[in-house]
């Protein structure tokens, strides 16, 4: 048991059923093991940070959550992952699952559609036809992704022709347009300048009221700024999960975490 001093009174968030529960998760690519024995819960409306060096299995973990495994040849998922009470491995309609989970990949992919259509794609897939509603969604999502001011005069321009940082924000806007219950961010700031990163981080803090975020980041300080709890992944295992404040104030339970935080490896 962890000491109760930091969270003296359990909040509603702590007792509500978890949005995602992971038990004994293992991921293999053919014979190569990417992740093993991961148990964790992701609570509703928290920002769950995942830090760790390259090849720790962070991205594989995200792929298992929204079942993007079929794009990776030979990817094999063991154990159970439940999303909102359903084991994702038993869901046949994966598209429905994915439409409830937004993803931002580390390398941005602007679809070869106009900026407007990029953001409007997901609402349209949901069957939204009203131009007024779509306009509203596009503007709101682009604003939240801190992109609106840069592109509002050229919404019909091709999304794939934006700069890397702009495409990254377009991808975030697109993920938000799904109105997801769960947002997976995989090193989103890799292609974005520091000022924009800070603006997006502000948005993420606000979004916490509406949805749940899993933030995989290579920036330890970003996890510190945003995450409620942080998990440290190393070599395909989840080494520890600790409330962020405690982890960064010397309360890491595993010495390897402390080493990583202090930059001794990784």
């Amino acid at each position: 048991m962890v000491s109760p001093s930091l969270h003296a009174t359990p909040t509603a968030r702590d007792t509500a059923p978890a949005l995602v529960t992971v038990r004994g998760l293992g991921i293999r690519y053919g014979a190569k093991v990417a992740l093993q024995g991961v148990d964790l819960d992701i609570r509703r409306n928290e920002i769950f940070g995942i830090i760790g060096p390259a090849n720790a299995g962070k991205t594989s973990f995200l792929r298992a959550l929204n079942r993007m495994d079929e794009f990776v040849p030979h990817m094999q998922i063991d154990g159970t992952v439940t999303f909102a009470g359903r084991d994702v491995r038993t869901i046949r309609n994966l598209y429905a699952l994915r439409s409830h989970i937004g993803v931002v990949f580390p390398l941005p992919v602007g679809l070869p559609l106009s900026i407007y259509d990029n953001v409007a794609l997901s609402p349209r897939l949901r069957g939204e036809r009203s131009k007024a509603v779509l306009d509203e969604i596009v503007e709101r999502c682009l604003r939240r992704a801190a992109l609106w001011d840069e592109v509002k005069d050229r919404l019909q321009g091709l999304g794939s022709l934006l700069s890397g940082g702009q495409q990254q924000r377009l991808t975030i806007a697109r993920a938000l347009s799904q109105e997801p219950e769960l947002l997976l961010l995989d090193e989103f700031s890799i292609a974005v300048d520091p000022v924009t990163t800070m603006r997006i981080e502000e948005v993420l803090k606000e979004l916490r009221r509406e949805l749940t975020i899993v933030l995989v980041t290579n920036l330890v300080q970003q996890a510190r700024r945003l995450a409620d709890r942080t998990a440290f992944f190393l070599g395909g295992r989840c080494v520890e999960i600790t409330p962020t404040e405690r982890m960064f104030s010397g309360g890491a339970t595993d010495p390897r975490t402390a080493d990583y935080l202090e930059g001794r490896f990784g």
């Binding site: 909102a84 359903r86 869901i91 429905a96 409830h100 949901r126």
Partner: peptide, 13 residues
Amino acid sequence: PSPFLPTAHEAGA
């Protein structure tokens, strides 16, 4: 919260 279920539109798609 109710467990995850595809919406009617998603099931249709």
